[in-house]
């Protein structure tokens, strides 16, 4: 009954107004910039509206293709790795072992490492000559990996760092989902003397699948925005190997100061984000009301 009270606006509006106030202007302004030739030279002297020219030149921009490849590899790769590892770790922690609590705390630590610092950390870890990862590989009798001088290895190094940071996120959510599965289901299965893997395959997995789907979407979107780690770790190199799409938007807009073009690149990303979020809401629509 009190659902109709006027007070409801008092509760709702502060947050909504805040978001509107601070995001609407930048968004509209960037949309406008994307139709202009604004750059460093003319920014204060007046630029021209050039219609869709910026958007038209995107397909022929070599860097766009290169950076999209990197972004897609990182996004799909890191999402897959975090999902598999996160689920595995959640499965481990879903066992009744005494003392596990302490470890759970340790395992969430990476989530709170600043990505910019993480990239620099990668610089030390993946260093080909002095880095501990290559020392470790050599210690096991392998050959050092060319983390910094081979395109796919470098992309993989960035992927591993990102996965290191975000595996705990998947772990926490999947663990929660696993623990919401009623015991009765397991007990029934155990009476059938099914052992570990079949139980996981036929009972646990189907029940955590919805949560996994949600997490996957969230991770896809977040990883596509990745910028800090490649920026600080490899400067986008070797060559353009670890330049992600966001990175390209960044250097176009804020190093070359080709603001018009950068805004059009960014808006492509906004459109992709809208498509992905639509899928997201379509998928979990049922849970919202």
């Amino acid at each position: 009954m009190y659902k109709k009270t006027r007070a409801r606006y008092f509760f709702l509006m502060p947050g909504i107004i805040w978001i509107l106030a601070f995001t609407i202007f930048p968004l509209i302004y960037s949309l406008y910039l994307s139709f202009t030739n604004a750059n460093m030279r003319n920014f204060n002297r007046g630029w021209d509206v050039i219609g869709l020219e910026n958007y038209a030149s995107i397909p022929s921009d070599l860097r766009v293709g290169e950076t999209v490849v990197t972004s897609v590899y990182l996004t799909l790769g890191s999402t897959a790795v975090t999902l598999v590892l996160g689920t595995f770790v959640a499965w481990l922690f879903n066992h009744n072992l005494p003392g596990l609590r302490i470890f759970r705390g340790i395992l969430t630590m990476p989530l709170f490492a600043a990505p910019i610092a993480l990239g620099f950390m990668g610089l030390i870890l993946f260093n080909e000559t002095s880095g501990s990862i290559n020392s470790f590989i050599r210690g096991l009798g392998g050959q050092g990996v060319r983390w910094m001088t081979d395109s796919w290895s470098a992309r993989t190094a960035v992927l591993l760092l990102d996965a290191w940071q975000w595996t705990p996120f998947v772990f926490i959510i999947v663990l929660a989902a696993m623990q919401s599965i009623p015991d009765e289901l397991y007990e029934a299965a155990r009476l059938d003397t099914a052992s570990g893997w079949p139980i996981f395959r036929h009972i646990t997995f189907p029940l955590i699948a919805p949560a996994l789907g949600t997490v996957a979407l969230l991770r896809l979107v977040e990883t596509f925005k990745i910028l800090d780690i490649p920026l600080s770790m490899l400067g986008g190199g070797p060559g353009s190997a670890t330049q992600t799409y966001s990175y390209y938007v960044y250097i176009t807009g804020l190093r070359s100061f080709n603001m018009g073009y950068a805004s059009s690149l960014a808006y492509i990303l906004v459109i992709i984000a809208i498509i992905i979020s639509s899928i997201y809401f379509w998928r979990i629509r049922a849970r919202f009301e």
Binding site: P238, G239, R255
Partner: peptide
């Protein structure tokens, strides 16, 4: 920035 990027690709044999 352009020169640096493309040189990098040549140096690693890409």
């Amino acid at each position: 920035e352009i020169l640096d990027t493309r040189l990098g690709q040549a140096m690693i044999g890409e």
